[in-house]
């Protein structure tokens, strides 16, 4: 098995948000600032990491008709760990992310990877898959929040960029999230179409 490939497929080839189109809600809702996005990415990666290991470890003893409730319970357990840890050590982040921390449970990426990958593969491969997918998700969030934070609040990591410049507040509200993602997906499609045409003419 090509472990290198298992890790990097989550970043580009099977990128959760941009290619598979899953895990949209947290991507859009939390990407108002880069630090929020990175914390959300870390939290989701941790849950993904834990649930993939556990699911992969018990994959041969779980009867297939009760697997979904068991997976959900495992995922929820790790989400509670993230919730309590953030509440204790990073109360500001906990407050900023709000209800989107408990909602990691229903992030389709995690259940999707448990069902599609961890339930069929061994533990090392599942760990790499989880880390790759988590990294891909974190990168998406960071790119999106980078654009939105600069345009929407004229700041980066909380530091003002251009003093005296009035930012477009719309970009950190809900419409800005939809516009940014729509335009990014458009860009992805353009790149894909270009490379496809390039390959055909070769």
């Amino acid at each position: 098995m090509d472990y290198f490939k298992e890790f990097f497929k989550g970043v580009w080839e099977k990128n959760p948000t941009f290619v598979l189109g899953i895990g949209m809600c947290p991507t859009l809702a939390v990407s108002t600032s880069v630090s929020n996005a990175i914390w959300m990415g870390i939290g989701t990666t941790f849950v993904l990491f834990g649930s993939n290991i556990l699911v992969s470890a018990i994959r041969n003893i779980v009867p297939s008709h009760v697997r979904i409730p068991i997976f959900i319970t495992i995922i929820a357990t790790f989400v509670i760990i993230v919730e309590l840890t953030l509440k204790a050590y990073q109360p500001a982040v906990y407050k900023a992310l709000g209800i989107y921390i408990p909602l990691i449970v229903v992030n389709c990426i995690i259940l999707g990877r448990a069902e599609e990958f961890a339930a069929k593969n061994n533990i090392p491969a599942s760990i790499l898959d989880a880390l790759g997918m988590g990294l891909g998700f974190t990168l998406n969030l960071t790119v999106l929040s980078f654009i939105r934070e600069i345009l929407g609040s004229n700041k980066l990591f909380g530091y003002t960029l251009i003093p005296g410049f009035k930012p477009a507040l719309l970009m950190i509200l809900a419409p800005g999230a939809f516009f940014t993602l729509g335009l990014l997906l458009w860009g992805m499609n353009v790149i894909k179409a270009r490379t496809a045409r390039f390959k055909r003419t070769e």
């Binding site: 189109g21 509200l173 809900a174 419409p175 939809f178 458009w186 499609n189 353009v190």
Partner: peptide
């Protein structure tokens, strides 16, 4: 436009709707 079809145009539409709801 060909590359805007599907999800991208849906997101831009959703953005306009969200703006109206704002």
């Amino acid at each position: 436009p060909e590359n805007l079809k599907g999800l991208p145009i849906t997101f831009i539409t959703a953005g306009l709707m969200a703006m109206a709801f704002l």
